[in-house]
């Protein structure tokens, strides 16, 4: 069993009063050391729930129903909560989207980093404080000593996101999950943040699980990409392959909705229709109600995720038939 992370048949559901939400529905994927895997999809496609399932942070009314999450060969789903608390933040870490609400407003940034170290290491309180300042410097925060004694609201958005990353990498995790880490930031800061994460990845051989809805971020940062739709992986491919040869009509739609940087601006397209209700999913392919290629078979039977070419998997009866010409 190789690989840093291997997720097999993960099913996560939420038992709400309106019904059972099939947030993640039988997904499998893997992630290697020093690899960045991009996960792309609309809101509600199950990206964040997948990440929280890996972290084992799914709370009632949610439940992980089936599957295995092998992290360095060990199944996280069989581990007691006590052990998970030692793994989280140390080997397996996560950075959330909104840096302002993700930091505790009543503690200084330095103190928040230091207490993660307190929980996971045997460093003395002075050493922890020194390390916190070092970490803030490492993520490129100017005047780290001064900033360490600041409260989150006293920092800019970019600096807060860096501080959050500093906290997440404080114990050199093996796997870092980033949930849309730059959505709230402007483009130059975004580039800086990804440069930083890329550097850290190279230094520590860290695996990166990057959740985003921005395919251009994935293109520049990730080696492989997973496209999710309504709780399911619909396509998985090396980044270059996905751009050159998208197989799923949904992927194609996503790619067509990005404005091109070069050449004549083609007409930007949007995918008609809406993400289906995860409580009442259609019987066949989840995408069939919005798919212009869908026929009888698509409406009735669900396609499996099958390998189309080495490393390139797709779940579509019409795989590739959408073609570039549509």
């Amino acid at each position: 069993m190789s690989g840093l992370l291997r997720v097999e048949g993960l099913v996560t559901r939420f038992y709400t009063e309106e019904g059972v939400v099939k947030a993640v529905d039988g997904n499998s994927f893997h992630l290697e050391e020093n690899e960045a895997l991009g996960v792309v999809g609309e809101s509600g496609s199950g990206k964040t729930v997948t990440a929280l399932s890996i972290m084992r942070l799914i709370e009632a009314p949610g439940r992980i129903e089936a599957g295995r999450i092998l992290f360095r060969g060990e199944d996280l789903l069989t581990k007691p909560e006590r052990e998970m608390r030692r793994i989280r933040g140390r080997d397996l870490s996560m950075v959330f989207q909104d840096s302002l609400s993700s930091l505790n407003p009543t503690l200084t940034v330095g103190a928040q980093i230091a207490r993660v170290l307190k929980h996971h290491t045997r460093l003395s309180s002075r050493a922890r404080r020194r390390r916190a300042v070092e970490l803030l410097a490492a993520v490129g925060i100017p005047e780290p000593e001064k900033r360490a004694s600041h409260y989150p609201h006293q920092l800019s958005g970019g600096m807060r996101q860096r501080a959050l990353i500093a906290m997440a990498i404080s114990c050199n995790p093996k796997l870092l999950i980033l949930d849309e880490p730059t959505t709230a930031l402007d483009v130059t800061i975004e580039a800086q943040i990804f440069e930083l994460i890329g550097k850290l990845k190279g230094e520590f051989g860290m695996g990166v699980f990057l959740i985003t809805h921005d395919l251009s971020v994935v293109a520049s940062f990730c080696r492989r990409v997973i496209i999710m739709y309504a709780g399911k992986i619909v396509e998985e491919a090396p980044v270059g392959d996905l751009y050159a040869n998208p197989l799923h009509p949904y992927t194609l739609g996503l790619l067509r909705s990005i404005p091109p940087l070069d050449g004549e601006a083609e007409r930007l397209e949007s995918i008609p229709g809406e993400v289906p209700d995860l409580i009442n999913l259609p019987p066949g392919c989840n995408f069939s109600p919005r798919c212009h290629l869908a026929d009888e078979r698509c409406w009735q039977r669900e396609p499996e995720l099958l390998e189309a070419s080495p490393g390139h998997r797709v779940a579509c009866w019409k795989a590739g038939k959408g073609g570039k010409g549509g």
Binding site: R85, R88, G89, H119
Partner: peptide, 21 residues
């Protein structure tokens, strides 16, 4: 229900600390 509580949990911090937060 606020996000910093989720962050604290994602850092593996003990339940007691999270409640005090």
């Amino acid at each position: 229900g606020r996000e910093f509580v989720l962050t604290a949990k994602a850092m593996g911090l003990p339940r007691r600390w999270v409640v005090i937060d």
